[in-house]
Computed example of a mutant assay.
Amino acid sequence: MTPPSLPARRSTSAVAKKCTRLRASVAAHWKQCTRCSERKERHPVELRQLERFLAVVDRGSLAEAARQVGLTQQAVSASIAALEKELEARLFDRAPGGVTRLTDAGHALVPHARAQLAADQRARRDISNLASARSGTVTLGIGETFAEDIVARAVSAILTERPDLRVNLVQGYSEQLMARLYAGEFDFLAAGVSNMTLPAGFEARVIYSARDIVACRAAHPAAQLASPTLADLQGYPWLVPYSRPSDVDVITEAFVARGLAPPTRFIGTDAYRVGMRLLASNDLLIMTSPALLANRLVRESYGIHVLPVDSPGVTRHASLVASSERPLSPAADTLYAAIVAAAADDGAVQRPPAVRQA
């Protein structure tokens, strides 16, 4: 390519010098642009080139490598030549009959090529496992209303089939866990929604419904009565969830509805074990989900007695709560389905999915 030239001009000495400098600058710029346009465009090394390279290394000849990868010998040779051109190094010394011997550059490439192909295989396997829910992580929040044995059976079932799946279980009161679900900490929640109104973008599938029970320690005076009534519970303090102040209203309204003096002493706690120990060592009363005391070991360990009274209480709907706008991951969807199946086997009342939004 011939650089453009500036027209010669007769001028004063100063103008002539300026024109000379300008012509030199244009020429230098044109030369640089020419080098850029002629510079070889580099292409990334492809995995299939490395695969064919290693086939030649392992089989010892182009012909054997071609049979291994299902290509013609010419195609494999062309692929190796393209790889050598890209790396600007000869990888093999060729001998008659297509026999090959690695050069120093070829020896240097072998471990990197094997690592690249191994990484590709691991990535494909991991992605496949995630898609099939054979691996990955699912985090579930479990409220006090939801039966623990249903969740335990569901988790046991999926871990038997998918031992590489990681499951995180976080237990607490439903109201506490709801806020953490909305913040994105959980994949979904197994909890009692009762009269809660879910915000837009979340839905609850009711698995079963259960009414609260009233309990106390076995040594409580009310536990000694064959048929205690609400009147027999007057004057005793109540243990209530700190994060659910509405339980105080329910208990108070139950006494008022019967024309009885409502309780005035309440202990609020979200510490489950501390609450159970307080209940076991004091004449307290508690209104709670039967799921919280469903475990026989828990009742016997703390000496808890369930009172045969029908009030106070709330019918709570044990539900699976999840985002209606963001699909569950394959791992979370697998656990969700396993919980539904375990509840069905348990004879829990099944209800169709329901969306309650603000």
Rank of each mutant, 00 (worst) to 15 (best):
P4T: 10
A8T: 15
T12S: 15
A14C: 10
T20Q: 14
T20D: 14
L22W: 12
C33S: 12
C36F: 11
E46F: 02
R48P: 00
Q49A: 12
V57D: 00
G60R: 03
S61E: 03
A63M: 09
Q68F: 14
Q73S: 14
E88C: 10
A89Q: 14
F92E: 02
T100H: 05
A113I: 04
Q116W: 01
L117F: 07
R122F: 07
L130Q: 09
G136A: 04
I142Y: 00
E144A: 13
A147R: 15
A154R: 11
A154Q: 04
S156W: 04
A157S: 15
A157F: 11
R162P: 05
R166L: 09
V167S: 03
N168M: 11
G172L: 08
G172S: 09
Q176G: 08
M178W: 07
G184M: 05
E185T: 11
L189Q: 00
S194W: 04
P199Y: 06
F202P: 05
E203K: 10
A204M: 04
V206D: 00
V206G: 07
Y208L: 02
A215V: 03
A218W: 03
P221K: 13
Q224H: 14
P228T: 08
D232S: 07
G235S: 08
W238Y: 13
S243M: 06
R244K: 14
V250G: 04
T252D: 01
E253S: 14
G259T: 10
L260Y: 00
L260I: 01
A261I: 02
P263I: 11
G268K: 06
T269A: 02
R273G: 01
R277P: 00
A294C: 04
L297Q: 13
S301H: 11
S301M: 05
Y302F: 15
G303F: 07
P312A: 12
R316W: 09
A318F: 05
S319K: 14
S323A: 08
D333P: 07
T334F: 12
Y336H: 15
D345A: 15
G347Y: 08
Q357C: 02
